[in-house]
Design a protein around this nucleic acid. Sequence first.
DNA 1: ATGAAAGCGCTAACAC
DNA 2: GTGTTAGCGCTTTCAT
Lengths: 338, 338
Amino acid sequence: MAANRRPTLADVAREVGVSAKTVSRVLNEDGPASARTREQVLAAVAKLGFQPNLMARNIRVGGPDTTIGLVVPDLGNPFFGAVAGGIEDVVRDRGLTLLMGSSADEPARERGLTDKFLARRISILMVIPSVGSDHSHLRSHRSTGLPIVFVDRPGAGLTTDSVVSSNLAGAHEGVAHLIAHGHRRIGFVGDLPTNLYTRRERLAGYRSALAEAGLPHDRSLVINAHDQHGASVCTSRLLELASPPTALFAGNNIVALGMVAELARIKRKDVAVVAFDDVPLAEALEPALTVVAQDPEEIGRKAAETALARLDGDRSRARTITVPTRLIVRGSGELTAS
Amino acid sequence: MAANRRPTLADVAREVGVSAKTVSRVLNEDGPASARTREQVLAAVAKLGFQPNLMARNIRVGGPDTTIGLVVPDLGNPFFGAVAGGIEDVVRDRGLTLLMGSSADEPARERGLTDKFLARRISILMVIPSVGSDHSHLRSHRSTGLPIVFVDRPGAGLTTDSVVSSNLAGAHEGVAHLIAHGHRRIGFVGDLPTNLYTRRERLAGYRSALAEAGLPHDRSLVINAHDQHGASVCTSRLLELASPPTALFAGNNIVALGMVAELARIKRKDVAVVAFDDVPLAEALEPALTVVAQDPEEIGRKAAETALARLDGDRSRARTITVPTRLIVRGSGELTAS
DNA sequence: ATGAAAGCGCTAACAC
DNA sequence: GTGTTAGCGCTTTCAT
């Protein structure tokens, strides 16, 4: 009972008293088959509980496997979960299945995952690149016709399609919102590492908004954190400056959580806040949190659509698709500067 | 340039002037190989950009594929993302990769995914069962030695391992907390459909806490919602009753979001609340949200450990592992009844 | 309408 | 230390 072999095509054929090829024909609705044969085969399949071995099929047919490899930094981060959901929505109809792994933003783990995926002959590769990753090794795969899409951040060493949020414009809009309410000293708490693409773009948006308003750029107001707790520490540190900011901009969802938690802890409702990326319960906070919302599902969908187009023969040059962000005004950004 | 064939073992062998088996030996560190041969082979592998075809290998070796199939209801729900992360943490060292798909809680989609996974000859199957699914068709696979684990909810029609939260005890503890603060009319907003395992268990916990305190069970105080908005509607409906509850219990994280959002919207800070499942920013709310926290990563880890033990030959009878919940008191449950 | 033989890319089993 | 043969489970090609 323990380790029974699974039945094969040959087993089914033997059961019916027919050749393997005939069974194959019935199951794939390939060539012709008499009604009687078809019935018998189907009956035997059901009886034996036969399920075709997809790997064996793929190997013979030679085409890629019907999977799509996706590398994310962290499976637990809802942002990436939403991206994955968007991808799945689009590829489901094509019969593609998601192969997923998390890189912890470490290039070595990212490389290990992509190598494994490639060894499986995936149909599409999608990567949210880790900081410091180099992707030139993927060139030979691209030239084999494998669609590769970088998601959320651009890759390095390989020219291919990518899908990102309007990070710079979104941050600009959020900071401009604060400036419009009279703030002149605005703190920025960003991601780590500091050369992370999204952090650089959003910081650039922060700076451009300041420049547009003719405000000076004070480096002491820019600080970075790796996790939620770090963001809390950064927040209190900024507020303890000799000349503290009257408003804060959070560079991502995790930072936003830490920042809001810290402001609640020290009961500071007078500090204006705008966060990049929406968070649950933003409306229930006091004041309700104003955010620059991303659309992770849409990012996933666009990435999937692009990759499928490539699979269908689209040979146009690599594009970068920008998914717009949206300022959702809820109150926390409208506190006026003292 | 477009659809170049990927190099095979034979290509590498030809390049070096050696047999395919020798290349295989070098790459898998199987049998012996002279230092010189090894070098030449490695050089050729690098030159041609050869990557072994894992599917071909698997088919020959006959063992299962080094993947683990995971069906979740919704990729975007952070609870399931955290479960997936816990699983990955445990199986990574064994070289197993996650194959994931979302069922939308529809039995047909769940079945489609498991069938696809099984056709790929996965090493382990993990399912968060949809309401109404039947799993008796998996019996033949179990008897082939495939470890199957139900996660978060028990499956139907198949006796196998499962890992769940202490739903009943957790809900009991949360409701008892409210009772201890003088509440006698406590509303319960649960999941839909009403026969969902987690809802039934948590409702049972709610009832047992009432019974323990000698409180009557008023059916009009129990109501259900499918999504966040529905939970908001349920919340206001409960509060509009002729004899409204003074405290509310939220049956899951999504319901909690809707409930808290609604209470904030109508500015009711006098209603005590305890939620099942933690939510981000619970500490930053006013009052801070008291929750019965689950540990999704631990659920994932336990499920993975159980499955790996089965893979390693554990033939003991099927177990149900219960991962404890933890009451986190933050304030919202301590409002005393008027 | 069906079957036989060959072969996809790889490795097990046996040579030498 | 290395090569040969056979064969995993399936499909292609060509017969019949």
